[in-house]
């Protein structure tokens, strides 16, 4: 049962990375779109694309938190009371980001929109960075099973910095790829071109960081490295192939398929992390089985998951379909 719960948890992490990640990335492009006049059209596309779906995309984070604390309560407490600094910063970022976005959408004057837009954009970069750093701290085994680990060293370390940087770039990459498709759908060639250039650049940077990451992990998190290059190697390879194909497609001017491949590349990496951790939840000191809640609790988690799959997934598909058909209007 603990394996099932862990799979559900990682599925949540993956979906958050792919869907929530694109949302964060859109904020990155908002931040870098330049002055009010120059950045006007890219920002408008970002607003239109994000509007209806952002909240749904972020519920995945809540999903991960509740599954973690219900199914693996000790590990949740240990992570929280070790990595509290980056987690608190991420929480602040989430508030600033959500509020900034929602307010910016309905406000009227340029100066108001600037303030809210800035809050949204800056926190869209800060939040994934610190969440990535948290992932790095967990992945490199820096969270003791009983909690109370080093409050600084647990996230100021090579693997965490790698995680943070990778999270930011990957989010930017995903967002740019989605926005290319969105611009294509709305028949806006100038914006399609705009985001295509950025998608390619972000893809190359993400690839480079991932490559450099291999050396970082070899020194800093040898067990993770061994498993990523061992048992999880197929997933890493899938990720590389998908990433490269997506890039090629982007360069050739295709946009729709690129979106799914880019998402698959990210999903495969997150999945690879999960496989590489197995059978441990924290470092090599806390196994999934030891950390798991009693089976009756895990069965509830599983049941909730099944109910979510049959209710939320079709609803979510309905939402995305309505959005793609242009039936949801952001103002």
């Amino acid at each position: 049962m603990s394996g099932v719960a862990a799979t559900i948890l990682f599925l949540g992490v993956t979906l958050y990375a792919v869907l929530g990640g694109a949302d964060f990335g859109a904020g990155f492009w908002d931040l870098t779109a330049g002055g009010a006049t120059r950045g006007r059209r890219p920002r408008a596309l970002i607003d239109a694309a994000l509007g209806p779906v952002w909240e749904a995309n972020h519920v995945w984070l809540i999903f991960c938190l509740v599954v973690l604390w219900t199914a693996f309560p000790g590990a949740f407490a240990a992570i929280m009371d070790t990595l509290y600094i980056p987690l608190a910063i991420a929480a602040v970022g989430i508030v600033a980001r959500g509020a900034g976005f929602a307010f910016g959408k309905v406000s009227e004057t340029l100066s108001e929109q600037r303030i809210y837009g800035a809050a949204f954009a800056v926190s869209s970069v800060i939040t994934p960075f610190f969440l990535g750093a948290v992932a790095g701290g967990i992945a490199s085994g820096r969270v003791p099973a009983g909690g109370g680990g080093d409050p600084l060293g647990s996230w100021v370390n090579p693997t965490s910095m790698l995680g943070g940087a990778l999270a930011v770039v990957v989010c930017a990459y995903l967002a740019a790829v989605y926005l290319v498709a969105e611009a294509d759908r709305l028949d806006l060639p100038d914006l399609e071109h705009y985001f295509r250039r950025r998608a390619i650049a972000a893809g190359i940077v993400a690839g480079a960081i991932a490559f450099a990451g291999i050396f970082v992990l070899r020194d800093d998190a040898p067990r993770l490295f061994d498993h990523l290059t061992g048992i999880a190697l197929p997933l890493v390879a899938v990720s590389a192939v998908c990433g490269l194909t997506a890039l090629t497609l982007l360069c050739r001017g295709a946009s729709r398929a690129g979106r799914y491949l880019a998402a698959a590349a990210v999903a495969a990496v997150v999945g690879g992390w999960g496989v590489a951790q197995y059978p441990f939840l924290l470092g090599t000191h806390l196994t999934l089985t030891a950390a798991a809640a009693p089976d009756s609790t895990l069965r509830v988690v599983f049941a909730v998951f099944v109910v979510a799959a049959v209710t939320c997934v079709p609803s979510l598909v309905y939402l995305y379909v309505l959005e793609q058909r242009g039936q949801l209007d952001s103002h």
């Binding site: 604390w69 309560p73 000790g74």
Partner: peptide, 8 residues
């Protein structure tokens, strides 16, 4: 830590 499995 102590009650997540129930309270959660």
């Amino acid at each position: 830590r102590r009650f997540g499995q129930a309270y959660g």
